[in-house]
């Protein structure tokens, strides 16, 4: 046995030496280098680096001078940061609820075998192709107290009419919301519509034979069936909200009154690149990461962990 297999080995090696593992498919490994570098160095390494340096007192330049939770204590005692978090929370919940509910309702309307579906969809989705800067500037103009909606209505004779969300600290978030919904609802509608179209036609037929009214079929059968679509949409929208930055810059620059519409992403940028207080910027961005993880981990668990149990 052993003699024969040795002889075999010699024979094969004289024909073609079995190549060592690492050298097989070399070009595929070379081709994967950018992906590996991005994943390991930038995404993983960069994240860890920032988290680590958030425990230092870096100012103008990153310095490995560890000071424990000092940066976090300072962060959470800053009024500006607290307002940012509060704003993000209010804006996030409102935006999430409105985009998902409105997106779903619009998708349901679009799913009624309507005429001109393509036209309606094109109109509802085009804002999504525009940048937040363009979105913000247009709505800033429409909401302009002097010339915008308020001005027009006042010119019509309602001189006491007030609609000036962007210059009132109490309502500025609604101003952002109007623009944010305009930009993003069409996208959610498209995701929901794709979800609705993915549902087996026979389910609808069965419900009709069973005599279930349409609205009840949506509530009792279709929405539960679309749970994965809802969850995925929520995660995508939520992680976008946490990143909210451009829209605020364009519409209010964080104002009025200095910080009425501040958001965390703005705080990070200002401390990292303007105020040259890197430690604060790192600490704030770590908190942003934390908030995303709070959204992401339950989702990943539901999506990938739940599957194993069937």
């Amino acid at each position: 046995m052993s003699v024969a297999s040795e002889a075999d080995a010699i024979r094969t090696s004289s024909v073609a030496k079995p190549r060592p593992r690492w050298s097989r498919n070399v070009s595929s490994k070379i081709a994967a280098i950018p992906m590996i570098l991005t994943a390991l160095v930038v995404f993983l390494g960069g994240t860890i680096w920032t988290v680590v340096y958030s425990f230092t007192n870096s100012k103008l330049l990153p310095r490995a001078n560890f000071v424990g939770f000092d940066q976090y204590e300072r962060l959470w005692s800053q009024n500006r940061w607290l307002v940012s978090i509060e704003n993000l929370l209010y804006y996030g919940v409102m935006s999430l609820v409105f985009t998902v509910v409105m997106g779903f309702i619009l998708a349901v309307l679009m799913d009624q075998k309507i005429r001109f579906e393509d036209t309606f969809r094109t109109i509802m989705l085009y804002p999504f192709a525009l940048s937040f800067i363009v979105t913000g500037l247009v709505w800033q103009w429409i909401l302009n107290p002097e010339f915008g909606i308020q001005g027009v209505v006042r010119d019509l004779g309602w001189t006491s009419f007030t609609f000036d969300p962007l210059n009132n600290p109490d309502t500025v978030l609604f101003g952002l919301l109007i623009a944010g919904l305009w930009q993003g609802t069409g996208f959610v509608m498209c995701l929901m519509l794709a979800g609705l179209r993915g549902i087996d036609e026979d389910i609808w037929k069965a419900a009709r034979v069973d005599g279930i009214p349409t609205w009840k079929t949506y509530v009792m059968v279709i929405i539960p069936m679309m749970r994965p679509v809802f969850i995925t949409t929520l995660v995508i929208v939520a992680s976008g909200i946490i990143r909210l930055y451009d829209l605020v810059v364009a519409m209010t620059s964080g104002g009025p009154g200095g910080n009425a519409s501040q958001v965390p992403a703005m705080y990070v940028y200002d401390y990292m690149f303007q105020a040259q207080n890197l430690g604060q910027g790192f600490a704030a961005s770590t908190m942003m990461l934390l908030s995303v993880l709070i959204v992401l981990i339950p989702w990943a668990y539901l999506e990938f962990g739940g599957k194993k149990h069937g």
Partner: peptide, 30 residues
Amino acid sequence: WKFKGSDIFFTILIFGSFIPYQIMLYPIVI
């Protein structure tokens, strides 16, 4: 051309798309 660990890199990549850019900005600057 799956290789050992290719799926891990891909998973990191997908998770990376949800992570706020802000946390990676400065390391990229460096």
